[in-house]
């Protein structure tokens, strides 16, 4: 019983190129290895044994922005870090997505003061906000799956418009 015979029984699958590309993107999304504060520890926990984000094609955290598709802003962004964060975002190749993980990255959280950006959406366009201080690893995984839903619904012509 070879694999050829099995495949032969499946016949032909028809789909649009759009669907196929989007499907592929959701199964090998590489997040950037980029932790800022408390949420980074929960992000690590989401990668580690108990929660194991690699179930969703995300085991590969890339330390270089040039190899990554997804930026998880895990933690508070200070005024000094803001320009660095923006530069990292600019260095990522298209298409790219951003998750604001936790309350600080989403809206400033408990730190309503001079030092912290009140939400990372002041700096970069955010696709999914994950609430919690810090969010549980499950919440982050849910956020990632929400990004996937978004990716699956994307149209090429919208992307081309920018």
């Amino acid at each position: 019983m070879g694999v050829e015979q099995k495949l032969g029984n499946m016949g032909v699958v028809t789909t649009s190129l759009e669907t196929a590309v989007n499907w592929a993107r959701t199964n090998a999304m590489w997040p950037m290895l980029f932790g800022l504060a408390c949420c980074a520890i929960e992000m690590m926990a989401a990668q580690a044994s108990d929660y194991d984000m690699s179930r969703f094609g995300m085991e590969l955290m890339r330390a270089s922005p040039r190899q990554s598709d997804l930026m998880i802003v895990a933690g508070r962004v200070s005024k000094k870090m803001g320009p660095v964060l923006r530069r990292l975002y600019d260095q990522m190749p298209e298409p790219k997505w951003v998750i604001a993980m936790g309350d600080c990255a989403s809206c400033g959280g408990v730190f309503n003061n001079y030092a912290i950006y009140q939400g990372v959406d002041e700096l970069v366009p955010v696709d999914v906000y994950v609430a919690g201080c810090p969010p549980r690893p499950e919440a982050l995984i849910h956020g990632v799956l929400t990004v996937y839903e978004k990716v699956k619904a994307e149209k090429f012509k919208d992307l081309a418009k920018g």
Partner: peptide, 11 residues
């Protein structure tokens, strides 16, 4: 240092 300065003390 200072990339994570949060202003905790002032807050």
């Amino acid at each position: 240092i200072g990339f994570l300065h949060t202003g905790v003390e002032k807050n």
